[in-house]
Design a protein around this nucleic acid. Structure first.
Length: 488
RNA sequence: GCCCCCGUCGUCUAGAGGCCAAGGACACCACCCUUUCAAGGUGGCGACACGGGUUCGAAUCCCGUCGGGGGCACCA
């Protein structure tokens, strides 16, 4: 089994592409086959020099290592199409010689005009086969004289083709509805169709696994295989990923949620936001594939073990950010404190918080179940790392059914406990509870003011652990500041 | 417009004629736990697009309608 992921380096690495790469990878690993990376850079106009790095880094982040590719080589190289132009030329010439393809001298202007006319007359748009029956000798002569031309494949004029797709099942096309597609552009670079077919054959690809948007070109590709006398690979077309709304295929550009939150679509963005590769892979695998009616969490090893083409669904699936967040939170909670601490450090630094393994590790366990992404941590731990809190919001400081004066009293009572208590969870717990009770306060009436005084907000990690980490000095100082703020 | 594909809770899905008065998960709601926020637990809301067949019996098979998606480039 040999499969390939063959992206075009025109833009950033999209999660849709990542899903395709993942399925190819899982299939290869499941069967002990090879996963090949091929760069289809035949579109010079849209080529983006950064795209290759984005792609390679993205695949590495996801942990989808490839066996053959542009950087690692392999016995079927080169793996970048622009380095294989002579191969395409040779094969194209063969089709020309055998009369299976023909040169087209039509100008872009003429093609435009034809298309416009067809649209005006509500006819099917497509090439009118103007050059199809040019005399071969004349055609060769004009080409030799340097006349600009493309090469088009000669489609059967009346024929129907039926083939099997592993996901979709039987599909039938009528060649009459298709047109003589360009296989070689006038600059001597092949189009996707030609290069893709030649490479898949030469690289001995056994299964073509790619997005659904390609099904319409299967008849053309099949004709190409047939023209060369080659056996086509097994076709596997993966359902498209739709926008969260279910409307249209997932955007190629990052969007924004109604609340202003960025909606990432690039692998790089998810990485930067602190999504764990394990969670990404788990989520991605379940978009269009499932094992059974209950298993949700899969490690990469388990995915490899269970993956099968038969269980790929034919219908498209909408992207669900909430579900991804759920998976990511789950994987974050599975991490050891040490591992999570190390993963968190770069994200905190990014946010301008200078934490270290030593200062962060006591905090990690108390925020672990409160974050969905690694970048969420910054806004949760910030108060541990600042010298002075921003001004207090007295509405938060003062508990319901209490006033400023009562709150000040509560804080003063708390202070008296914290001045002497041992700064450790259990000791603080019993000391504060007992004292609150003895001065006639409910636990919450004392805890809320302390929490806000110390953390600067109501929604915060567990209080006692927080106090213990912060230490006596800081806690007392912040409580004083809170009292002062209430007196103002 | 033409061609191809798809159609189970809002979303991801299980379901390959009787095991389904349709199961799980996310989201949402309620309750429990609880010092807040989470996490966790329990419960709830919620779907076979519609209409015809076939069959003793259909979410599952067939046809049509409707809806959705994709493709119709010297882009991939």
């Amino acid at each position: 089994m040999r499969v390939r992921y063959a992206p075009s380096p025109t833009g950033d690495f999209h999660v849709g592409g990542a899903r395709t790469a993942l399925f190819n990878y899982l299939f290869a690993r499941h069967h002990g086959g090879s996963f090949i990376l091929r760069i289809e850079d035949t579109d010079q106009k849209r080529f983006n020099p950064e795209a290759l790095d984005w792609l390679l880094n993205g695949l590495r982040y996801l942990g989808l290592e490839w066996d053959e590719g542009p950087d690692v080589g392999g016995e079927f190289g080169p793996y970048t199409q622009t380095e294989r132009l002579d191969i395409y030329q040779r094969h194209c010439q063969q089709l020309l010689d055998e009369g299976k393809a023909y040169r087209c001298f039509c100008t872009a202007e003429r093609l435009d005009a034809v298309r416009k006319e067809q649209q005006k007359n509500k006819q099917r748009s497509g090439y009118d086969r103007h050059c199809r029956n040019l005399d071969p000798t004349e055609s060769a002569e004009r080409a030799n004289n340097g006349e600009q031309h493309t090469v088009r494949i000669k489609l059967p004029l009346a024929e129907t083709i039926t083939f099997q797709d592993k996901v979709k099942g039987k599909i039938t096309f009528d060649y009459t509805n298709l047109q003589d597609a360009v296989i070689m552009k006038s600059d001597g670079i092949p189009t996707y169709h030609l290069a893709n077919v030649i490479d898949d054959h030469l690289m001995q690809i056994s299964h073509i696994m790619r997005g659904d948007e390609w099904v319409n070109s299967i008849p053309l590709h099949l004709l190409l295989y047939q023209s060369f006398g080659w056996q086509p690979p097994v076709m596997v077309h993966l359902p498209l990923i739709l926008n969260p709304t279910g409307k249209g295929k997932m955007s190629k550009r990052e969007g924004r949620a109604p609340d202003g939150r960025v909606l990432p679509v690039f692998v790089r963005s998810f990485e930067e936001m602190g999504y764990l590769p394990e969670a990404m892979i788990n989520y991605l695998a379940l978009l269009g594939w499932s094992l059974d009616d209950k298993t949700e969490i899969f490690s990469k090893i388990e995915l490899i073990e269970h993956f099968s083409l038969e269980r790929i669904k034919p219908s498209p699936a909408a992207w669900d950010y909430d579900r991804l967040d759920h998976f990511n939170g789950d994987y974050i909670r599975q991490l050891s404190v040490e591992a999570l601490t190390e993963q968190l450090l770069p994200f905190l630094e990014q946010a301008g918080i200078s934490a270290t393994s030593e200062t962060l590790s006591p905090i990690t366990p108390i925020i672990q179940e409160r974050i969905k992404t690694l970048s969420d941590a910054a806004s949760q731990v910030d108060f541990f790392f600042v010298e002075n809190l921003p001004d207090y919001d007295s509405a938060e400081l003062i508990p319901k059914k209490m006033d400023a004066a009562q709150t000040i009293t509560a804080l003063q009572e708390a202070k008296s406990v914290l001045t002497t208590a041992e700064f450790e969870h259990d000791a603080l717990d019993s000391a504060l509870r007992t004292h609150a009770k003895s001065v006639g306060l409910k636990v919450g009436q004392m805890f809320q003011p302390i929490r806000v005084a110390v953390c600067g907000r109501k929604a915060a990690p567990p209080l006692l652990d927080t106090l213990a980490v912060l230490g006596r000095e800081t806690c007392l100082k912040r409580i004083d500041q809170a009292i002062e703020s209430l007196n103002r």
